[in-house]
Simulated assay, not measured.
Amino acid sequence: MELHQDLPPLMALRAFEAVARHLSFIKAADELSVTQSAISHQVQKLEQFLNQRLFIRRTRAIDLTPAGETYYRRIQPALESIASATRELRSDEQQETTLRIGLLASFATLWLAPRLAGFNARHPHIHVELLPSVQLADVNGGEVDLAIRYGKGGWPKVVARRFMGETLTPVCSPAFKAQGVENGPLLMAKSYQPFEWIDWSTHNAVDITHYPSVMLHDYNIVVEAAVGGQGIAMGRQHLIERRLKEGALVTAFDTPPFTNEIGYWLVTPNRPPSHAAESFAQWLEEIADA
């Protein structure tokens, strides 16, 4: 029998062990530097995998079910053994390591940077160096250790896996919408793969050929221009969430949110990743799943 068939996801096990030890989702989330909802999601994933309820959830407290208590006693020593073996193997790797990440400035500013403290707390010996650029960094050539790219994938000579999708909706300022959006202009960011407006207009059967367009250097500038009433931007939900909540941006057209294969991709070289790169990749996928 192959071992992997009976092994649950490791993050789900880590989440369960922390919650069972603390009997608290909040304390487990603090320990693992993720959100409480992420912990809850991982525990639910484990319960589905096992087809067993592991916790009794009460208003102000939780307890292990009998099955959860038995499972915790069985897996806790195994996890401690794995941790101990890992500590011994990594004892000579505690020197500072720099991880260079190529990405768009907009993604760094609007999504990654506010969350980066969680990675720093978990891996204090890995120094993350963000290298924002509109141009694609040469990952396979060693210009960066890994990259985060926005698009549909398909980049040559690299390994790319999508870790987070994106939802697109044209947005503008409330004042701009009140004046009328019929004449645009459409605000666009320079892109290696221009696709947002094309895909959105095709999906919604909206003719945008008569709209003038304004090409801006980076999506950060596109967002600020839209907030300032300069035109209509293609809103990337993950990056403009705060602006929408504040009311600085509103939907420009009466069309539903649009999703397809567009999203954010973790791009690594065509060779085994370093320990630092693998640690960052694991953390990134965890918080994207939260």
Score class of each variant (00 low, 15 high):
R73Y: 04
R74D: 10
R74M: 15
R74V: 15
I75H: 11
I75Y: 11
Q76D: 06
Q76I: 14
P77H: 04
A78E: 09
L79D: 03
L79R: 08
L79V: 05
E80I: 09
E80Y: 05
E80F: 05
S81W: 14
S81N: 12
S81Q: 15
S81H: 14
I82F: 13
I82W: 11
I82P: 00
A83L: 09
A83N: 07
A83E: 12
A83G: 00
S84R: 15
S84W: 12
S84Q: 13
S84N: 11
A85G: 10
A85D: 12
A85N: 12
T86Q: 09
R87T: 11
R87H: 12
R87V: 14
R87E: 08
R87L: 14
R87M: 13
E88H: 12
E88C: 13
E88A: 15
L89T: 03
L89I: 07
L89W: 03
R90S: 06
R90A: 10
R90N: 09
R90Y: 13
R90P: 00
R90C: 04
S91V: 11
S91Y: 00
D92K: 07
D92L: 11
D92W: 04
D92E: 08
E93Y: 14
E93F: 14
E93N: 05
Q94Y: 08
Q94V: 10
Q95Y: 03
E96G: 03
E96W: 01
E96D: 05
E96C: 09
T98M: 02
L99G: 03
L99W: 06
L99E: 01
L99D: 01
L99M: 04
R100L: 01
R100Q: 07
R100A: 00
I101N: 02
G102E: 01
G102L: 01
G102F: 00
G102P: 05
L103P: 00
L104Q: 07
A105I: 06
A105F: 03
